[in-house]
Design a protein around this nucleic acid. Sequence first.
DNA 1: CTGTTAGCGCCTTCAC
DNA 2: GTGAAGGCGCTAACAG
Lengths: 342, 342
Amino acid sequence: MSNQMMTLKKLAELSNFSVSTVSKALADNPEISTKTKNKIKKLADFYNYKPNITAKNLKERKTRTIGVIIPNILAHFFAKVLSGIEKEATEKGYNIITCISDESFEKEVKSVEMLANGSVDGFIISISKETFLKENFKHFQKAIDKGLPISMFDRVTEKVYCDKVVINDFESSYLATEKLIKCGCENIVFVTPIHDTSVGSDRVRGYEKALENGLKKKEESKVLIIDDYQEFTHNFTKFLKENKVDGIVAADELSGIYTMNLVIGAGLKVPEDISVIGFTDGILAGNSNPPLTTIDQRALELGKIAACNIINRLEDNQKETIQYETTVLETYLIERGSTDFK
Amino acid sequence: MSNQMMTLKKLAELSNFSVSTVSKALADNPEISTKTKNKIKKLADFYNYKPNITAKNLKERKTRTIGVIIPNILAHFFAKVLSGIEKEATEKGYNIITCISDESFEKEVKSVEMLANGSVDGFIISISKETFLKENFKHFQKAIDKGLPISMFDRVTEKVYCDKVVINDFESSYLATEKLIKCGCENIVFVTPIHDTSVGSDRVRGYEKALENGLKKKEESKVLIIDDYQEFTHNFTKFLKENKVDGIVAADELSGIYTMNLVIGAGLKVPEDISVIGFTDGILAGNSNPPLTTIDQRALELGKIAACNIINRLEDNQKETIQYETTVLETYLIERGSTDFK
DNA sequence: CTGTTAGCGCCTTCAC
DNA sequence: GTGAAGGCGCTAACAG
């Protein structure tokens, strides 16, 4: 904030009115005469006066700013959700302060605590991996107890009572697996870099259920967890040699593309030898070779709804009465070149 | 901001000390006796007291918040720069408010104006396409005149006098083109979706200069501008049929990948028939098929330096004396499968 | 119609 | 050692 800003006080001195008259005039208060209003408005305009937001915030005890805490911004999915949030927030006159937890519990806690000191009116959060591992959600509860509502998206937990928006991960994963089964795949593996998260486990369950229902002969599910891509490269290539695989469901976009490239690198063909489906309809999926069939994660809508949820909550006056809601978005399959009927 | 926050005043009532004593005690002011300090600190701890940032900001006339205005967050390059900014800012105790101009002049102006009312202490900006087209940079100058410094990155303009950080776009593009010439390419086209920007025109110049210096026979440069990808798909496919092309330099990552896919889609081989080089070492380039040779744009460092620039400026007291600087980062070529010696 | 006063929460003289 | 007072910039209740 600079110190050469025009203030009501200076404007009052310049115009020979009192501070409150100036304030009222600029607010178009009917108490003030048109003549005075015009005089003051002209002056304010001339000096390019803009009311100081910080002072206004202090007075009104709100900031019209939302804290957004996401695990990672390099994943296209989160970038897209963020753009959805930003758009909605801007339209409704809110700013967003973005913090990246980088999948770290500690950073997440710090970000919440730091922003809970009056910097924001509420939060939009997608939970970090480490937080799921620790099963420690106290920092969220503390914020809520302080009067700062939270709106969660995608990675959520039933341990915290607040508004949430997710896609139907179980069904989506079921759908993807079923699609592969219909394509004739009989040895389908599930690849996941997000095994510890809520969405990760829902997607595994959907995959397993689809196998259980769909395949004639009983086939055990195979879930390959990615902690480190280097390591995975080695392990998966080995796995491909030692096991029959004809279908892959990947829990996100990058792992889908990455796995597909490993398959191709191993001399196999996609989709002829192995079909691949990923999650998130991002920039990778549309531009890979072959293009990746995906479950659309509806990132923009997730962001929009998450923002609406928190803003409604903030602007609602009888806060106690409204129940918290979990919105579940339906998804659909976008068929591209990485899957095919055989 | 919630209304159930602990304040100095409440703490004063609870402890039977005055507000100023409580304030001093918590600030570890030596005037206060150790006994009182301990008593008050314990109480503050118990009630999880955190000083209200807004009030502090008003008092100190600063926000420790930086406004970041970028054209687009879905491009991996900008997401990466943003993560670099966020990291550096967080470490130095600053928050960032992010606005996405979406390449629109109007949104950019609005964002600057809105944040210039006391929401932020300064700006980090990468200029929108439309702003370059309009050649109107007054909104930046106004912010600076108000005492809000600006730090620009990547897309900059010499019309505004402020700190800047860029890569050596001319040389980088020269390098990329030269590389193709060394590979034996003789019909190299330049593809650009950012023709109107500073970086866009520098890269075209680098390409043209390299052609001029490197090719034996005089070959005219061919710059294909992408306004709309749909349209480009049609035009470029036609262009490929009607013209001899054996090398492509793309001004960013997506256009590189996209063009490569069009080449492959037309039945040609990369790199055997046509070599391709793009800009930005992003997630697309590393995972395409073949992987794309690129000029690394050093996004993380750009973000870090842009953040350092603005923070140094904000924390510097004899503002007048320090000259504005433009930092130019060297780049390097990351060779992958889309180029090859013939 | 206009001005005085008070207060949002914090910090910082200055007085006791 | 502790407290009272004033002010950051704004708004609003209350006088005049």
